[in-house]
């Protein structure tokens, strides 16, 4: 890896780890379902940026873009379905708190 690539990798890598930590912390600490989805979104965004960075460094941006498009499609489906589930839980329990899910059967 040459010096320019290393500089790019280290700078972006540093912030990607911080972004991932933000998402992971949000997912662990929050009790609100919508905020949990936001945490998942932040994790996915960190991974997206990492894949694009890997594509740039290895000179395979086209492959990285193809993979990222797939990730984005999956991300949207996850967000829409998770939001639907959150809404469904809210209608049933009148709360967005994940602890209200403990009263479920099974």
């Amino acid at each position: 890896m040459n010096a320019n690539s290393w500089q790019l990798f280290s700078t972006f890598g540093f912030f990607i780890i911080l972004l991932f930590a933000c998402g992971a912390y949000c997912l662990v600490v929050t009790r609100n379902m919508i905020r949990a989805i936001i945490g998942i979104e932040l994790l996915i965004k960190a991974v997206t940026l990492l894949i694009i960075l890997a594509g740039k460094i290895t000179g395979r941006t086209s492959l990285a873009q193809g993979l990222v498009m797939t990730i984005i499609v999956i991300e949207v489906v996850i967000a829409a379905t998770a939001a639907g589930i959150a809404l469904w839980v809210f209608r049933h329990t009148d709360s967005l708190d994940v602890r209200s899910l403990r009263s479920l059967k099974g």
């Binding site: 940026l49 740039k56 873009q65 498009m69």
Partner: peptide, 13 residues
């Protein structure tokens, strides 16, 4: 992040 991706030569993504 979109701006950063654009700056990393991946305009379509």
């Amino acid at each position: 992040i979109s701006i950063l991706i654009f700056r990393l030569d991946s305009p379509l993504a």
